[in-house]
Design a binder for these strands. Structure first.
Lengths: 252, 252
DNA sequence: GCTAACTGTGTATGCCATAGAGTGTTGTTG
DNA sequence: CAACAACACTCTATGGCATACACAGTTAGC
């Protein structure tokens, strides 16, 4: 295989493309373009990103961008990948559980500061530098644990999938709370009332019981519950992993 | 609050819209429209769905659809929700673990038979009938367990998020294997070779070790590993939930 | 200096979602 | 039964979109 078989965006993102020998110096850079795109997406979501708008942001014609990027889809993938910023070193070895917790929270933070990333289809195997960095750090945390590579990859997938779900959920809750006005609980109350209109006892018996018992109207949205709900899923996952790894250590 | 505050698509999906008293009988139905849309999406993905194509499929002008649907986005949401089909009764009570396992596998199956559903942004609180059905069944499984409503909802979110991730992943793996040709392992080998080009030891030290040790080239793709990888995440989650519930039963 | 390679521009095409006015049909009301 | 109001659907724009293609200007190497 040659490097030519790599997708164009992967080659440019890793700097594997040889620089041009003749012709004018490029007036733009991939970094500048993705940065402009990210600025637009952060402001107006993915729907606010068009090649024309990105070009205008840079003071350039639309078609100029195509000298740097193969297509809009490729640009968006590059944008998403380059949102990966904050990455510390994580505890590993016996403290792997803390390491993975921190890693997942960082992935969630990262996704929540760029909510449009979650609107993208999940790609198959990662090849772009940002996702590879994430993967590398997670594998480093798990280094030395009695898991084979497939299990480690499954673990990373599990946690990053969870992070994505969580990030989308909380971004949307934050957005609808902001839209509903000052009151934090207002959005939750609204939702409870909407549910009440729609949840018939015949089609949704269990749900109907919970709704009419008032479980949705109260206590879903206050501060303490937020913190608990934020960590519930992650802690279950980590506990499950811990049990598995402990069993392996015991010789299973 | 009145029912008017519900989104239009939610009202029509639940049949809360009163039928017209005057004027010609509608020549179409929401069901026919969503079914046509689903047919297109199953064939060509979400990109293959346009109002014009759906209309042509039904022998009608584009604008006729807007008598039934508020916007294309609303149509797509309705399409996604109405893909919910197979739903059995699941074991509950002490057998909740089997119930949730089966429920999750059904959600995965459902998503994999309509891969375009995963291209949609995850919505906030579910209001459409399909998602409500899923939610109701899951709550029924957990009925009687010592969890409060917030924890039950977190559990459902955790599992459905995992199902989404898993479904996307396996759909894409299946697609790339199909694209790579007859050989099942070919796609995995390709990926391993691509990784080798891109994973530098400086930026991705741990990953580089795994890649050059050959862990990606062999054994990722064979039949046994597929089955194991498919269940790894789910079993960790279920184990984690089990530990939590057991602790609650013990009086925690 | 000539030329090939390269960067950015201008223009054009075809698809898209959707607005708004117009046409015919139907149940209801006087 | 006649008139009308409510409705279903069609026709015709409009503005945005991604992107193909031909071009003009710029630079490095021969």
């Amino acid at each position: 295989m040659s490097a030519q078989e790599l997708p164009h965006e992967v080659r440019v993102a890793h700097g594997l493309e040889e620089a041009a020998r003749r012709g004018p110096k490029p007036g733009l850079s991939l970094e500048a373009i993705t940065a402009a795109g990210i600025r637009l997406a952060d402001a107006d979501g993915l729907a606010g990103v068009s090649m024309a708008k990105v070009a205008k942001e840079l003071g350039v014609t639309t078609m100029a961008l195509y000298r740097y990027v193969e297509s809009k889809d490729a640009l968006v993938r590059l944008m998403a990948d380059s949102t990966v910023s904050t990455l510390r070193d994580y505890p590993a070895g016996p403290a792997w559980k803390d390491g993975l917790r921190q890693w997942t929270l960082d992935v969630i933070d990262n996704a929540m500061s760029h909510p449009w990333v979650a609107e993208l289809p999940i790609t198959g195997g990662p090849l772009l530098p940002g996702s590879l960095t994430f993967l590398d750090r997670a594998l480093a945390i798990l280094d030395g644990q009695p898991l084979d590579l497939g299990e480690k990859l499954s673990t990373v997938m599990l946690l990053s999938g969870h992070a994505r779900t969580e990030a989308v959920m909380w971004s949307q809750i934050a957005a609808s709370r902001a839209a509903a006005g000052v009151s934090d609980v207002q959005a939750d109350t609204d939702y409870a009332e909407q549910l009440a209109f729609v949840v018939s006892p015949e089609r949704f018996p269990t749900l109907h019981r919970e709704v009419s018992a008032g479980g949705f109207s109260e206590g879903i949205g206050d501060q303490d519950d937020d913190a608990e709900m934020r960590s519930f899923g992650l802690e279950r996952i980590l506990d499950g992993l811990e049990a598995h790894i402990a069993q392996r250590h015991a010789g299973g």
